[in-house]
């Protein structure tokens, strides 16, 4: 269950940063991504997947969230 800081990158994409692992990756896809809900399975550009309960309202970035490893 890593603590993940998500911020908006210069190119508009969301950057997924795990401090413990020094991993910085863009988020490729988010399962639920609407105006008032965000979450579900999050896939990164390197192929790894994380899960977070979809939350409502949509969080404002940057923020720190607690993800679970999917699969």
């Amino acid at each position: 269950m890593p603590n993940v800081m998500i911020r908006i990158k210069d190119n508009g994409a969301l950057l997924f940063y795990i401090a413990k692992k020094d991993q910085e990756d863009e988020i490729a896809t988010v399962e639920v991504d609407t105006d008032n809900e965000w979450g579900g399975v999050v896939e990164l550009t390197d192929g790894s997947k994380y899960y977070i309960e979809p939350m409502s309202p949509r969080p404002s970035f940057p923020t720190t969230l607690r993800f679970k490893r999917a699969e």
């Binding site: 800081m5 911020r7 940063y17 401090a19 940057p62 923020t63």
Partner: peptide, 9 residues
């Protein structure tokens, strides 16, 4: 970078 990230958040 740690404290910069914190201030951004």
């Amino acid at each position: 970078n740690y404290v910069s990230r914190h201030m951004e958040e």
